[in-house]
Design a protein around this nucleic acid. Structure first.
Length: 989
RNA sequence: GCCCCGGUGGCGAAAUGGUAUACGCAUCGGACUUAAAAUCCGCCGCCUGUAUUGGCAUGUGGGUUCGAUUCCCACCCGGGGCACCA
């Protein structure tokens, strides 16, 4: 390479500064030079198994071990990046570069998640098409990231808005739409339950091997098209939902449960959300509830994230129990769900949710002797339940949360018969029972449940205790009686025994059993009596999948003149967004719950009406005018990095197996998937759950070979920043705040005025933004990378402090000076052998830094590299044999300066694929060790001893020390513990 | 309310049962310089003391251990998640 003569020469304005000092100016020259060099060389190209994507040497993968490492891909917002954003990108880059040096075939690439509301809103504000603004934003972000020296394979970059990509997103939707969940199908991994083509289901209806729900007396060929479409819709994994959905008038779109807060407001914009019956696309993620929980076990993820997913899915095991309810129009059955079937004997009343079907069968009059407060002042039960239901609907979710604990409810006039005891339980309706969990009805056990206890106390209902504390728990049931329920999964069952009778069936006794045994005993009793069975319940709901937006993927669906949906054939994909003048969403008064969604695409009649030949000749159809949510693109992008330009496959199976298949390398495990996935914990539930779901469907259908998309997940911490407010509470520019001492305290002033310091996020409105561009200008990308990696552990949040950045810069300057003469620019190194001390420190450093890199602890790796460099600084001339390994080890963190020094030291090849240094075990030991002599655990003396000293000899030496003799006062020690060669611990008499 | 994570110098932090405070920042002192910057060297937890030394320190209180920042129990403070899920 023809080295640029001016590179590495100082061009700063300071007249007396050495010409070849490493400063911000020089860093910039060096960094831009090497970035260009790497681009031209294709230094970071990963090699596929076959095909055109080869490495820079023109090779395919050729048996090299794959390593797939990516970041959660960014949303290219118009605001640009601040210094907090690249933390994870720098971390994955360090990991990528390290693995490349270990000889692995590293796939590291970056794409852009570019559909979505902010882009649309920004476009509406600026009056530009979202495609234009989004592409500008991507270009800007690409530049910012490129300037950091990130080692991406740029051939594999793409954006979710690319038509190549949209085509496959729609293709995946089509596969999900054409599938159903067969709960009995045995998968190739041995599990039971799998997505299967809907054609198989249709065939089983046609052949009669499966009964047609809703049409028990008819054959499939007998049904008309609309009836068949309707039956299949109830099975499809992507289906048209008929149950209430979250409608947000303020945003003008419907939302998924995951996008609605506990207060019942939109996560974005904080507008009210209403439950409305609207026909919308939904994904049957609930079919995968159990597998999504179960397979967390084979993932290398933070426990915290696994726990959040488990909680969100909320799998609970229990029993559903049938209660008979005599009503005016005949006997009804009420099914309740309980996680504690062992407490059936303690049920003293039942509660149904205000929307429950049973409430249509309440009696015309209140039964005799009903307490007044059970009636709520209503003349008859149906008036009561109607009024209560209306009142409950009018309550916002916010009200419900505020009132949690304060129980309300009314008697329904109905009684339910406990199937075990035959007891008649009054049935109430109350809004603490939710219609969409379990069966919407519960048996209330005030002796074992706080909510039931609260309700029972308010309405004067009896309390029966059926579980007592374990004898060794230190608790006694008498402490609870009359005061509180005994809520525990540990305990001994009491008062739970019946004789065999005609009414109740076989005898049953749970007395004396532990709770878990009792639950099993009751459940099997219920099953044999035909009045209940063990069931599993989930908190997870199906995923509402359509949005009324412009800037998203259109659905590959058209409707015929009967309104029946038809899939657009794969060879006609992608369905492109029409170019429309008005892409703004139709929003409403946020409080207007009566409004109806209006999709922007519906305004374009030319696009909506389309003539297609779907197999029975050209006909006019109407396109679906919804778009997919932002999550669609991020559900599968990781696998598209394998080849974003593949026109034949979503992903080619052989390439998938190599990069992401099960056991594709030593750590991938049976889950397979991305080897390292770095991103913020804010995606713990949404993105990560949706992507796992899609992946599992594609796995079931045989398109991918791994069970999971991401084998190892790492959540980087947040970079926090100080913000300052004046006495009116207004934020002032943080960069202009001055720090000083007053009366021993640190005070902060802005323009001479005292200001308050706060601690939190970095943000434009907080006036404390520092951008990567600021860092490039004053220090260079290498110093910026070094600082971010040295601030502390990667997974912890920490405050940004620009003042500390200079420490990293000084380290790089010392390293530079150790190789390059600052005034002449000449490389000066000692070609001879290393002295003993340097040799040992070098080997120890290689050993330690390797371990730190493996453990993703760049902060401690850096401190060890600094120690080694400080040793080299103390030598007259820097030895090549020590500085070269140092540069190699530093190169993943500060790649540009290392490439420059490597080049100056005479190496022609880029370091990108240089070998990571190895250590020699022989040099790890030390000649002498400082042994510590402790008396009662306190250090009272030190000895320099050989590393191989025997325990006996060390003990003798320690006891001979005058200071120790003095402490012992001539007496024999009671005990001496020797851990040669480090510690002698003496216990005096 | 329930669950999870954390609390170490003036500051960012290191040490996961064995010399607490590595590395960096700031402050202070010295060398170089006419001077300053830069650079190099050094001090740098608190109390006592010229120093040797001694005592006290890892949120608080207890426990286990020859020895605890590390393990156990209780509490205080900070951050995060969930929140009537039967």
């Amino acid at each position: 390479m023809n080295a640029n003569e001016n590179r590495g020469q100082n061009r700063s304005q300071e007249p007396d500064q050495p010409r070849y000092r490493y400063d911000a100016q020089m860093a910039q020259t060096i960094e831009e030079h090497w970035q260009k060099e790497w681009d031209q060389e294709g230094a970071f190209w990963a090699a596929n198994v076959a095909g055109d994507l080869k490495d820079s040497k023109g090779r395919n993968a050729e048996g090299r071990s794959p390593y797939f490492v990516i970041d959660m891909f960014p949303y290219p917002s118009g605001k640009g990046l601040h210094v907090g954003h690249p933390l994870g990108y720098i971390a994955t880059d360090v990991v990528s570069r390290y693995h490349r040096m270990k000889g692995e075939n590293v796939l590291h690439a970056m794409g852009y998640d570019a559909f979505g509301l902010p882009a649309e809103q920004y476009a509406v504000q600026t009056g530009q098409h979202p495609r234009v603004t989004t592409e500008q934003n991507i270009a800007n972000m690409r530049w910012q990231l490129h300037r950091l020296g990130l080692s991406f394979d740029d051939r594999r970059s793409f954006a979710t808005i690319d038509s190549d990509y949209v085509r496959w997103t729609q293709w995946i939707f089509s596969r999900i739409y054409e599938s159903w969940y067969d709960t009995e199908y045995r998968r190739r991994d041995g599990g039971v339950g799998s997505a299967r083509p809907i054609s198989e289901l249709e065939e089983s209806f046609r052949s009669g091997s499966r009964a047609i729900p809703g049409y028990p007396d008819r054959t499939w060929d007998d049904l008309d098209q609309a009836e068949r479409s309707d039956v299949l819709n109830d099975y499809r994994l992507a289906y048209i939902s008929k149950s209430p959905v979250n409608w947000c008038p303020g945003l003008g779109t419907v939302l998924a449960n995951e996008e609605v807060t506990a207060e019942g407001r939109s996560e974005r914009g904080n507008y009210p959300v209403y439950q409305r019956e609207l026909k919308q696309w939904s994904m049957r993620i609930t079919a995968y509830g159990h597998r999504l929980v179960e397979d967390l076990d084979i993932l290398d993820w933070p426990e915290k994230v696994k726990l959040m997913q488990r909680n969100w899915i909320g799998e609970s095991h229990g029993a559903s129990v049938l209660f008979k309810v005599p009503a005016k129009d005949g006997e009804r059955t009420m099914e309740v769900y309980t996680t504690r079937p062992d407490t059936l004997f303690g049920a003293t009343f039942a509660v149904v949710s205000p929307e429950h079907d049973l409430l249509r069968h309440v009696p015309d009059q209140w039964p005799e002797g009903v307490p007044e407060d059970w009636k709520g002042g209503y003349p008859d039960p149906s008036a009561a339940v109607r009024a209560y239901r209306l009142a409950a609907e009018a309550k916002t979710a916010r009200d419900r949360v505020d009132e949690a604990g304060e129980k309300t409810g009314l008697f329904t006039g109905l009684y339910a018969v406990n199937p075990i005891t035959g007891a008649r339980l009054p049935v109430f309706t109350a809004d603490y029972v939710l219609m969409d969990y379990g069966t919407g009805a519960i048996m209330a056990v005030p002796g074992g449940d706080q909510r039931d206890y609260d309700f029972a106390t308010k309405y004067g209902l009896p309390v029966i205790y059926t579980v007592k504390p374990l004898p060794d728990s230190g608790q006694d049931l008498a402490d609870f009686e009359g005061k509180a329920p005994f809520v525990s999964h540990d305990g001994i069952v009491i008062n739970s025994s019946i004789e065999a009778t005609e009414e109740a069936g076989d005898a049953l006794s749970l007395d004396g059993l532990r709770v878990d045994q009792a639950m099993e005993r009751v459940t099997s009793w219920l099953e044999s009596a035909g009045v209940g069975r063990g069931t599993v319940s989930y908190r997870l709901r199906d995923w509402l999948f359509s949005r009324q937006r412009y800037w998203g993927e259109p659905f590959p669906i058209v409707y015929d003149d009967q309104g029946l949906p038809h899939l657009i054939p794969d060879d006609q994909l992608p369905v492109a967004l029409p170019d429309v003048p008005d892409y703004s969403p139709k929003t409403f008064d946020p409080e207007d719950s009566e409004s109806n969604p209006e999709a922007p695409l519906s305004r374009n009649q030319d696009w909506v009406d389309v003539t297609l030949d779907l197999g029975d000749g050209p006909k006019v159809y109407h396109r679906d005018t919804n778009t997919m949510p932002n999550w669609a693109g991020s559900c599968w992008y990781y696998m598209r990095y394998i080849d974003p330009h593949d026109t034949k496959h979503m992903v080619e199976p052989r390439e998938f197996d190599y990069w992401l298949g099960p056991n594709h390398n030593a750590t991938a495990g049976e889950s397979g998937g991305v080897d390292l996935y770095v991103g913020g914990v804010e995606h713990a539930v949404l993105h990560l759950l949706y992507a796992r779901f899609w992946h599992k469907v594609l796995y079931d259908l045989g398109f991918v070979s791994s069970k999971e998309p991401f084998h190892r997940l790492f959540n980087q911490g947040m970079i926090q920043a100080y913000a300052y407010t004046d006495k009116r509470g207004q934020y002032v520019p943080a960069a202009e705040v001055e720090e000083s001492e007053e009366g021993g305290k640190t005070i902060y002033t802005w323009q001479g005025e005292r200001v308050n310091r706060e601690f939190g996020k970095m943000g434009k409105s907080l006036k404390n933004i520092i951008t990567p561009d600021d860092m490039y200008r004053t220090y260079g990308a290498d110093t910026f990378r070094l600082y971010e990696m040295s601030m502390g552990p990667l997974d912890e949040s920490r405050p940004w402090n620009t003042r500390n950045v200079v420490g990293g810069m000084r380290f790089l300057q010392r390293l530079w000076r150790n190789v390059v003469d600052e005034s002449t620019g000449q490389v000066v190194v000692d070609e001879g052998e290393l002295d003993e001390k340097t040799l040992k420190l070098l080997n120890q450093t290689i050993h330690d830094v390797t371990a730190e890199m493996e453990g993703m602890r760049p902060n401690t790796a850096i401190s060890k590299l600094i120690v080694l460099n400080n040793r080299l600084t103390s030598l007259k001339v820097t030895p090549r044999a020590a500085v070269e390994p140092l540069i190699l080890m530093l190169s993943p963190i500060a790649p540009h300066i290392c490439e420059e020094l490597w080049n100056k030291l005479g190496h022609q090849e880029s370091m990108a694929h240089a070998d990571w240094p190895t250590w020699d075990e022989r040099y790890l030991g030390q000649d002498t060790v400082t042994a510590v002599v402790q008396v009662k655990g306190k250090v009272r003396g030190k000895l320099e001893v050989g590393p191989d000293i025997s325990a006996e000899e060390l003990q003798a030496k320690a006891l001979a020390l005058p200071a120790i003799q003095e402490r012992l006062g001539g007496k024999e020690p009671r005990k001496v513990i020797v851990k040669a060669p480090k510690i002698v611990s003496i216990v005096p008499a």
